[in-house]
Design a protein around this nucleic acid. Sequence first.
DNA 1: CGTGGCATTAGAATAGTTCTAAAATTGATC
DNA 2: GATCAATTTTAGAACTATTCTAATGCCACG
Lengths: 144, 144
Amino acid sequence: MTDLTHNEALQKTTVDQRLTERGIFVTAQRRAIADVLFARNQHLTADQLLMLVNETGAKVSKATIYNTLGLFAEKGLVREIHISSAKTFYDSNTSRHHHFYNMDTGDLIDMKERLAPLFLQSDLPDGTVMETADIVVRVRNQKP
Amino acid sequence: MTDLTHNEALQKTTVDQRLTERGIFVTAQRRAIADVLFARNQHLTADQLLMLVNETGAKVSKATIYNTLGLFAEKGLVREIHISSAKTFYDSNTSRHHHFYNMDTGDLIDMKERLAPLFLQSDLPDGTVMETADIVVRVRNQKP
DNA sequence: CGTGGCATTAGAATAGTTCTAAAATTGATC
DNA sequence: GATCAATTTTAGAACTATTCTAATGCCACG
């Protein structure tokens, strides 16, 4: 067994665990999707993910990409980021952080958490509990 | 001249000024849209606005609603709020403030500004300038 | 094996938004 | 007022991201 296959085996276990821990049934498609998605911290659209997954040789349909992203989001494995009506990103990094969006380039850049505010229970509307706090700071390239 | 028509005349001037100040050419449709939109601080979708405007007797097409909202947003008269891929709200209140979104009811609720963070120029990605900071805190109704 | 229940699929349907090309309106100028 | 160029508005088609549908596939378990 080479190091490569050893690493692959390790990652497979890790990814499987990640899903199982959240009560998600592991299937071939879900693993294929998770392998690509969780390979690193990244921001992907459903379409980009579909292409990347199918490039690995796996054969996964568009509907499954959406089903799976929806499931992962519900279980807290990915975060949805709504930039505009035509741009929904899925963020494989679910640690507490936020984003800068460069309107000129379309880049989505992570923001250090210390810049984000804390919302205390007492700050929230009466009778509600916080689910997520999403901050998008839109920036433009500085004019010369 | 009754008080009512007097008030209407006053409002018309105010709305016209608001557009003209931003270099927006006033037309009948733009005024009809602005009258409804700026009557009070509110969060409307393009569709809701279209219905409200046409209920006043004005006849404005869907395309014009979108054109005008785009123009107003570009000129800083309204703020776009992206809640999900299927929900873009236009906020007639452009003062610095942010939002709570109740995932259970769909309500969008204003957040006091003091809860929002300040983003200093030094915090932003290199070579960029801030355009807007959008914060949406998603909340759910507290379980009994 | 066979059955029940979920997962996956291709493609159709939906819905919000943008585009198109023609008609209408505008302010400026005579 | 009439004319002109430029801009705005319009109806409806086109587009696109996402969701739905109904059929098929895949397991686990008895």
